[in-house]
Every structure is written in structure tokens, then in C-alpha cells.
Write a protein that binds this DNA or RNA. Structure first.
Lengths: 138, 138
DNA sequence: GTTTATGCAAATTCTTTGCAATACT
DNA sequence: AGTATTGCAAAGAATTTGCATAAAC
């Protein structure tokens, strides 16, 4: 994944911070929270991380990954499917391992569309599955 | 829902704070975060709310509701299906309205079991659907 | 009377905002 | 040069911990 091209595509200047943060998210198999990113990155300020995440979220470069820890996590978007309203369609599920704590995108498992009662409009579906991951499974 | 009985059942003393917080969650149609509970309740301390939520979570009286705001929300358990390891089985989905902001449990919509790649063990599934709710749908 | 739960204070962690300085195009 | 981005400081929320007091059984 070419971070430079990604930034260009979204009319964002390619700065050291952005490249480093996105590089990290791209290489990391798992979703990271701001505090986790802060620990892993050493060149930039805490505030820059927040702002980078916020910007990339708007542009649809990354997506939120819900977590039961109360911390919001973020992962890079493999396929970029976004509509104009900044809603991002995740057709994959997220898996959090209760042993190692990692949250990963499972691209192979797709979310079947949910049928809600009449009157509800579905814009986005987020699935978090918790359990034990392949690595931690004895 | 009889809060007294509920507390007795789990060997918890029935205090004013607990009754009030659980009453609130039981009456409220939507899941609430700690700050929201704090605003709605006036008798007890902020810390007591945190501790009450934590205790009730362990006992399986309430369950976490994931939210894209970064705040953890909580809702009372209608059916009490818990195993010994404090994992709670939600077979229902949660819906967050992007207009009014309310997050509600939709008991009618059940979560079909997900089939994960070999090696993964599923303990808990959490589905958050976002969009526009019945009330806000024009 | 013993145990459990609360309140208060304080510390810690997470997140946001304003503004001047800096880096990118 | 002109604009977008960063860093720093500081404020604002959210959450946790310790310990003495108070309430439940």
C-alpha cells in the first residue's frame, strides 16, 4: 500500500506524521487506539495523532473499530468504498481476542444485511465478535 | 421488572443508588453512558455510578452496548443468559440513530451465528447498526 | 457486629481547542 | 507566497484508586 498515493488521492499533504501513522496502521494487522498509536510512534505529538485520525476518518482512509474497552480503535481501509456522507461501508467483521487483546479485521467474513422493523433506515453496520483468535487458541 | 428481586438474586445489597440506576436503565428504552446516567440521577456520586455499572456488568444484570462515540453505553439485560465466565450472550442487535443519538436494543432482530475461519472461537457477538430510527424517519 | 457499599479527594488517562510556528505545495 | 499542518500549552471530559464514613444484612 502506497501511503503517498493514498494521501495525494485525498488531497492531503504528505507529512512525516501522516505517513508514519498510516504506515503503522497498514502494517499492523490489528486495529489500534490513539494511546496505542502514541506508544508506537515517536516522532509526533499526541494532538497530531488525534487530528490525523480525524482527518483520515473523514476522507475514508481509515475506519473506526468498535471495542468493548471503551477506547475507540482505528484500522486502515483495504477497499475504499465510501459514499458522500462520510459513512463507510464495512462489509467485513471485526474480531477481538480476549486473550491477546488484538482486534483484527476479518475480510473473509462478510456481514449479511440485517432486516430491521419497518421505518428504520440502515446506513452502517458494525460487527464485533469476541472470543479467542487463531494464534491464542491452544 | 423488580429491581429488588434482581439484586437479591445476585446477592447484591439493595441500596438507593443501585435501585435508582437500574430503574433508570430498565425504564429507559435506550442504552446510556455513564455521563448520561450521571445527568439523570441526582442522589449518588459519580464514582458510585461507575462502581454500580461495573458490579452489575460482572453479575450479568446489564450489558455493554458499543458506541461509535467512544463512550461505552449500558443497557439492562431482558433475558438473563450468562455463562460462568461473565460472557453475556446478546442475541439481539443494537441500533443507534444518527439523528436523535439514541441507541436501542432491537430484540426482534436476532444475530445469525457467524462462521469464522478455522481456529477462531466465538464467545460473544456485538452488532451495532447505525442509521435513522423509526421516530426520526420523516 | 461484620461486611459491603458509598462519598470525597485526588490522580490518571483520554480528548479537544487556540494560537503561534513550521512545513508542504 | 499562500495554505495546510504541527507543536505546545492548557482546558475539559472520562475513568480509576485509596481511604474513611456510612449503610445493609
Amino acid at each position: 500500500m502506497d501511503i503517498r498515493k493514498l494521501l495525494n488521492k485525498h488531497a492531503l499533504r504528505h507529512t512525516e506524521s501522516r505517513v508514519e501513522i498510516l504506515q503503522l496502521l497498514a502494517e499492523q494487522g490489528s486495529a489500534l487506539s490513539q494511546p496505542e498509536i502514541e506508544k508506537a510512534v515517536n516522532t509526533c505529538d499526541r494532538v497530531t495523532i488525534y487530528r490525523t485520525l480525524s482527518t483520515c476518518l473523514e476522507k475514508g482512509i481509515i475506519h473506526k473499530v468498535l471495542d468493548d474497552s471503551g477506547l475507540m480503535k482505528y484500522a486502515i481501509c483495504k477497499e475504499e468504498v465510501c459514499d458522500e456522507k462520510h459513512y463507510h461501508s464495512h462489509d467485513h467483521v471485526h474480531f477481538k481476542c480476549n486473550t491477546c487483546g488484538d482486534t483484527t479485521c476479518i475480510e473473509e467474513v462478510h456481514v449479511a444485511p440485517f432486516v430491521l422493523p419497518r421505518g428504520f433506515i440502515v446506513k452502517e453496520v458494525n460487527v464485533l465478535i469476541q472470543g479467542i483468535c487463531m494464534k491464542c487458541n491452544p
